[in-house]
Each structure stands twice: as C-alpha cells, then as structure tokens.
Design a protein around this nucleic acid. Structure first.
Length: 812
RNA sequence: GGCCGAGUGGCGGAAUUGGUAUACGCGUUCGACUUAAAAUCGAAUGGAAUCUUCCAUACGGGUUCAAGUCCCGUCUCGGCUACCA
C-alpha cells in the first residue's frame, strides 16, 4: 500500500484543476425563465490587501470557509461563482516606494504573483478567469466612473474640513498615521489644518441604511455596530433669541421637556456665531480659547475630560421662563453634531451639571423623581413629573416632549428634528497610490469632471514618491500630467472652449475602490460598463460574503453604493450582501495576537511544507473551533487532523473488502451524511469535521463498505479536496453530494432514559414500537432495581417525553 | 462611562427547541507490534468515594417534573465606542 503523501497528490490535482479550469463559473443562463434557471450561489471573501509577507493563517481561515461552501454547493449541482481579487491601493506600497524607489505598480505586481501562487497551493476553487485588482487602470477606470455618477447627482462634493497635518513632514496624515497624537514617521505632535476636501453624501441614505439593517441575515454584533454608527436620535430643534441682538441660536436637544431647566447655552468653539456674540471685554479670551482648542489633539481631549470654557458676554432668553441665559463656548460641544450648540440643563444632564459646577452657573430642577426611585445621582436624567415648568407642571416627561415642541412650534421657534451621529464620508486622500479623482480645475477654481469617454485618469509614474510641501501628494510632481487642455463648456457663456486645467491631486479613499468590486466580478472584462446588466441580475446580490474586519466602514459603504446605484436604475436590488459570515481571528499558541515583532507568527506555507500538506491545514482551520470565534493555534492539534486524513487514506488504499450493508452500517452512513450536510448549512464546520472523525473511527471498528468510502470521500471533499479527489478516483466515483434517507435513520430498538426527580437512574433498551405505549414504558422502568430504590415512597407524577425517549418519575 | 459578546475537564471545544453534561481532537497513562525508537493499532481518562452514589458548566438566588440552556443579581475576561446634547 502506498503511504498518504500530500506533497505528491496535491501537486497532481492542482495541475489538473489548472489545466481543466475546473472552477470557471458557467455563464448565467439569463435567457431562461426564472424557474428553469440553475440555482446559483455567489460567494466571496473580503478581498485581501496583497502584502509582501504573503498569506497568513487568518487569510486561510477566511478563504477556506468560502472554499468549503463553494465546493459544497458545486457538489450539490448548483451554479457557483467564486471569484477572487486584490485590494491593492494603500499606504504600505506607497511607503515602500518612498523608502526604496520601487514603484507601487511593480511592487503590487510582485505581491499579487506571490499571493496567487500561494492560493493555488491551498487548492482553492477559484474562478481564475475573473481575477481583479483595484489598481489596474481597467478597474479604476470604473471606480472613477462610479465617482462621476455620484458627482452628477450631487452626492460627491467639496467642503472645507479639518485634516491632520504634520508640521515637520509638511504632509497631511490619515487617521491611522496618527499615533497618540503624534506623526507616525517623525514623532512630531500633529495639528489640525483646514483644507478643502471631497465627501460622499452618505447621510442622504441614513434612514434607509438604518431601516434595512433589520432585514439582513448578518451577525447581530455587526448590525448593532452599524445602528450605533448611524446613531439616529429623535429630538427637537429650538431657536433661542439672543438678547438685544436680533439673532437666533439654533440648538438640538433630545430632551425638549426639560427646557424650563435650561439655564445657559453652550456653543462649540468652531460655531460661526461665536465671533458675533463676543463683546470687547471678552473677545481676547474667547479667541484664545478657540485657538487652543483647535490645537488640541484628540488624545488630549480624551485624556483631559475636565470641562473648560469661556463666557461670550452675551445672553439668550429662555422661551419658557423668560429668564436670561448666559452663552458660553466649550469644546464639550461638538460642531459636527446637531447644530453645534446646546441648551444646558444642569439639573438633568451630567455634562451640563459638571460644567455648571465648575463655572458656578445656576442649576434648576424641573423633573420630580418618581416615588421609590433609587437613583440618587446629582442630576436625574430619568423620567418623572415636571415641576417649575409653568403650565406644564404635573405633566409626565414622556408626554411633555411632544407637547412642549408643539407649543414652541406655535411660536415659530421649534420643531421636531432627527439627527444622526454619522457624518458624510470624507474621501480625499493626499496620497499618490490611490485612484485619482477625475476632476480638474480652471484658474478660478471651478470644477470640471473628466468626461466618461476620457477615463481612466491614469496614475502617472514619478521619480520620487514623497509628498511635497503643499500638502499635496506626489501626483503634483508629475507636471505633464497635472496640467492639460480640455474642451469644456464655459461657465458663463455656455459655449465650448478649450481651457487650460489643473488636475485634482487628491486620490480616493481605498474604501471607494472596494465599494463596488463584488459587482465587477460578474463581468470583470467588460470594457463598455462597470458591470453587465444581464450578468448582474443573474448572479448578484452576493449570497454569502465572508470576512473578519470592516464591521462599519466597508460594510456600510457597500450598502450605501448599492442603494445609490439602485436609485439610478443600475442595480436591481437594494442590499449587496444577503448573508454575512464574520469569522474570528487566529491567535498565536500563547493566545496573543500574531505579530512579527513578537516572533510568534505561524506561516501557513511552512505548515504545508513541513509535510502536513494543504488538506491538513485547511481541515485543521475548520476544526479549530466555531468559525466566528477567535481561536489559538495549536501545533499538536494540526497533527491530530493529519492523523485523521491518514486514516481516511488508509481506509481506501489499504482496504479489505467489508461485509455487505446491514441496518447498522446504513444507519451510520446516513446519519453521518445528515450531520455533515446540516452542519455545513449551519456553518458549524468544526462539528462537521468531528462527525467525519466519528464515522472513520466506527469504520475502523466495523469494517467499511465501498459505499461508506465513497460517502466519506464526498463529504470530505470541501475540506480536503486533493485527498478526496484521489480517493474518489481510486473508488471510481463521481463527487455528487450524497443525500440521506430518513428510512435508514430509524432503528428497531431505542435507549430509554429513566430519571427520578430529574436524575438519571437507568437506561433501558426497548423496542421502538413500545415507545408509543406509555403504560408499557412505565412498567419497564419500574422493573429496574435502581428505579425502585429511589421510588420507595411512591410516585407523585410521571412525565414522559417521547421525542427525547425520556421518562421522568417524580418521587413522593 | 455606554453598548455587545463570552465564562463547561489538564487544554481546544460539543450538547439543534429546557430533556442522558463533557461528543470530537490534543495531552497523559497502560497495552500490542519492534532489538529499540518513531509511526501505527487497541484500551483508559471531570473530581471524590468504590460497584453504585455524591459533587461539578464563573459565583449567589429564582422558575420548572427537569436548567450549561430561561429570569434576577454579582464577579472576571474580551471587543467596539467614547463628552453625540
């Protein structure tokens, strides 16, 4: 008998799959009526950033989940689309280029080639004819096209905004390049700098993005995070009159019921009205405070939660009480949320209370705690009855919210308002290695979108990848690219004129490139459109999407684009992903995160080359634990899985003819089919492997029928495809997924469990038909000596659960 | 501080709807084969008592004939979020 040699058989089958293009998806049979179409499944992992380090074990877990499902559905005769792609724009390639001078284009190509080679060694069932790469001009041409569609509808716009800025490197920094308030490269403390930036107006879709979360088959964890991120809150917008100035200050509050307790107003330092509210006496102090706050890094603001602020010198009038309310400026009020101004109710809001204490401002109770309330905090923010609130006294706070808003509305100074925590999506990146924004400007700063037929705007190669001193990316150094002539419509006359324009040097956030890639998979070589209309309606939306990251960002952006393109009539669905599987991380054997610096990284290719092979690696990563939980790598357990695969091999290649089928062998076979099938449907990959292990253990004891071996090989194929193919070849079988039959699952005898007071006292073998006869069952149970011992004083009650084959006697 | 998870043998974990807790794997121990080792095969393996019980699913209560599972409270760990009015 030959020994199980993964190196040899894996190479053999990988060659065959390569040659036969085994995993090429069938083109959609879109001409057939819906009910005659082959059922389809579109599966994908979150495509990786191909780093120079190659695949890690986390990738393998993620990709193997997709692979198990893809192969499982293929064996079930479904039409499966399982493509692959690379998310290649981003900082690592750019930094590498700055350091080494090797262009990101060429470094990316090298890394992709390495990734592809490694993926093939894992035996993934990928349709290689659909490989995509976001930095390929044929791909980002269509990313730019997507941008232009959003631009046309007014959903891509420019606005002044603050950006992290390193004064030493003279460059803009992305959030992830700011470490504890300092530049990651030179360690200088960063500042905020006001710059004109591009945004996508995701807030237009806030309501729908929130409402549709309910309908998604996604993990609750992700759904909750998205709800919190969108952060819808209902409240009121109220205008406060500034005393003697004739201006109004708009405020957002979720507690309009507490308006009689509002004793002062607070404005964010950036609030545009602040400069109008200051007096000669306060101007200097206020200006100083504003400058200081702007300089503060986020870290400082987090560390130092002590309230700070200054008085503007002006007063507003409380529309309820008619009393004067001093107007303050403080950084605990954020310009980006609500109106950037609040009415402070120190008696019933902790932050306002703290501020009032510090600056000695009046505190006025307007809610009476309900009797028996155990809440003894200084400021009560629960519900209760209103007091000190004019003619609203005695009203419940829950009811008062609406009543007070309509009362304010009657005076024209208030209305219901919904506010979101989510802001518009900032997409400008002052980086070289990203998708160029297809916009140009004339000398007056007017925007001109690049016409669709002139896309893509190609990234020019440059000598030096360092950003320049203007806060612009290295793209600004490509003079020939930067300035160009284009025929445009003159903004004033409407006539066609040729203008000398300057290109936008910001590139798009990488998340823009990944916001539509799932749709590109359906027609990756289409050079007439971003996605083919027929192909998209056959394949999309994605049925199962698997990943371990991007709970809010990517997974929210992709939903936003989907809704937008659905509104443009370009997609026939409003949610891009039906089922989302969010897999856990794999940690080092010591339970800590794997990292190069700790030297505890497990390289999946090493595991293969040690002699275990890809099948062991794949099967082990499915067996390691529930797919959605973090797990620690255990080298010893890898050996256990290898032993299991060896036993599978030995059953087939060292086989002695077994006896013919008996009831017991049939039952075992069909039970195993059912368990593995159900487990894969439920994504319980670890217990699916366990079920196969139990099957093999039994076959070792009882001897295996040929049908057992065929069944085993078919069930094993999604996990260990090379070995399974070798087994099936030897057995002369196809790989069609087996179906269990109920009739084989039943047995003529059953084990009856007898409990007394819920405790196990006896197990009795009974005939299945006797289970129907409760009297007989009770008699059999009472015949047991041990049952008699515990029921000497008689029996009070009998509970018989036929389904569980369980009898519980309650002793007197 | 807020929200969301999790806590079961020496270890990773199983238990689908409340119904036999500890499947499967690792480790450990013993045995077979071998000159020997490895590999392989077989057996045992929650704890205590010793032939049949008692105690065990983080801790304390509760509901139930029956709780790892449901309810209330406490503790520990992990993740996300962070002055969002």
């Amino acid at each position: 008998m030959d020994r199980y040699n993964p190196q040899e058989i894996e190479k053999k089958w990988q060659k065959i799959w390569e040659k036969e293009q085994t995993f090429k998806a069938a083109e959609g049979d879109d001409n057939l009526p819906k009910n005659q179409k082959t059922p389809k499944v579109f599966l994908a992992e979150m495509f990786p950033y191909p780093s120079g380090a190659g695949l890690h074990v986390g990738h393998v877990r993620n990709f193997t989940i997709v692979d198990v499902l893809a192969r499982f559905y293929t064996q079930q005769q479904m039409n499966v689309l399982r493509p692959f792609g690379y998310d290649t724009f981003g900082l690592p390639a750019e930094n590498y280029a700055i350091k080494t001078g090797i262009s990101p284009q060429s470094a990316t190509e090298t890394n992709i080639n390495n990734f592809r080679k490694q993926l093939k060694r894992l035996g993934y069932a990928i349709d290689w004819s659909r490989e995509i790469n976001t930095s390929d001009p044929e791909y980002y041409r269509w990313t730019q096209w997507c941008f232009l569609q959003l631009y046309k509808e007014g959903l891509a716009y420019r606005k002044e905004s603050y950006q992290w800025w390193c004064p030493v490197d003279q460059t803009v920094l992305a959030n992830e390049q700011v470490e504890n308030g300092h530049c990651w490269r030179c360690g200088t403390e960063v500042e905020k700098k006001k710059m004109k930036q591009w945004f996508f107006k995701i807030t237009d879709y806030a309501d729908e993005l929130l409402a549709d979360i309910d309908s998604l088959d996604w993990p609750d964890k992700i759904k909750t995070m998205q709800r919190n991120w969108i952060g819808r809150s209902e409240g009121a917008e109220i205008d406060f009159e500034v005393e003697g100035a004739g201006t109004m200050i708009k405020v957002f509050t979720t507690r309009p019921d507490t308006i009689f307790g509002a004793t002062f107003l607070v404005l964010a330092p950036e609030h545009p009205l602040v400069s109008k509210l200051v007096t000669d006496a306060t101007r200097e102090k206020v200006d100083q405070y504003r400058t200081e706050t702007l300089k503060k890094s986020e870290i400082e603001r987090q560390e130092n939660k002590e309230k700070t602020g200054v008085f503007t010198g002006s007063y507003a009038i409380n529309p309820g009480t008619g009393e004067k309310m001093p107007i303050w400026v403080s950084d605990y009020v954020l310009m980006g949320y609500g109106e950037g101004a609040i009415m402070a109710v120190p008696a019933h809001d902790e932050r306002d209370y703290e501020f009032a204490q510090k600056f000695d401002l009046p505190i006025k109770q307007v809610i009476e705690k309900p009797e028996g309330s155990t809440d003894d905090s200084e400021c009560y923010h629960g519900e209760g009855e209103l007091i000190n609130s004019g003619h609203f006294n005695g009203t419940r706070t829950e009811d008062a919210r609406e009543q007070i808003v309509s009362w304010l509305e009657g005076q024209g100074i208030g209305k219901q308002k919904v506010t979101y925590r989510m802001r518009d999506w900032l997409i400008s990146r002052q980086r070289y290695w990203g998708c160029p924004i297809p916009i140009a400007y004339d000398e007056d700063g007017n925007e001109y979108p690049i016409p669709e037929d002139q896309l893509p705007v190609i990234i020019p190669e440059v000598e030096d990848y360092k950003p320049d001193n203007s806060g612009r990316s290295a793209l600004a150094k490509a003079e020939d690219w930067l300035h160009f002539d284009m025929e445009v419509e003159d903004k004033k006359t409407g006539k066609k004129v040729v203008k000398h324009l300057t290109r936008e040097t910001d590139t798009l956030d990488g998340y823009a490139c990944s916001s539509w890639y799932l749709w590109r998979y359906v027609s990756p070589h289409d050079n007439k459109s971003a996605w083919d209309k027929n192909a998209i309606s056959y394949w999309a939306p994605t049925d199962i999407y698997v990943g371990a990251d991007h709970a809010v960002a990517h997974l929210l952006y992709i939903r936003f684009w989907c809704k937008f393109f659905a509104d443009q009539g370009l997609l026939p669905f409003r949610e891009p992903v039906k089922t989302l599987l969010y897999n856990g991380y794999i940690n080092a054997p010591d339970g800590k995160k794997m990292s190069k610096s700790k030297g505890n990284v497990i390289d999946p290719l090493d595991v293969i080359d040690q002699g275990y092979g890809a099948d062991t690696l794949r099967t082990y990563e499915m067996f390691i634990g529930p797919y959605d939980m973090d797990a620690a790598w255990d080298p010893k357990s890898v050996g256990g899985v290898y032993r299991f695969l060896n036993r599978c091999w030995n059953l087939v290649f060292g086989r002695v003819e077994g006896q013919s089928d008996s009831d017991d062998t049939l039952r075992l076979r069909h039970q195993t089919i059912k368990r593995v099938t159900d487990d894969i449907h439920r994504h319980n990959f670890n217990t699916a492997v366990s079920a196969m292990m139990e099957y093999v253990n039994e076959l070792y004891k009882t001897g295996a029928e040929k049908d057992d071996l065929i069944t085993l090989a078919k069930l094993l194929k999604p996990f260990a495809p090379h070995l399974a193919c070798e087994m099936l070849e030897k057995l002369g079988s196809d790989d069609v997924w087996p179906v269990w039959e109920e009739k084989y699952l039943v047995s003529s005898t059953a084990e009856l469990v007898v409990q007394v007071n819920g405790k196990l006292r006896a197990k009795i073998q009974v005939n299945v038909e006797d289970l129907e006869d409760q009297e007989k069952i009770e008699k059999l149970a009472l015949a047991e000596k041990n049952v008699q011992n515990f029921t000497k004083n008689g029996i009070k009650k009998v509970i018989y659960v036929k389904k569980a084959k369980l009898l519980n006697l309650v002793a007197a």
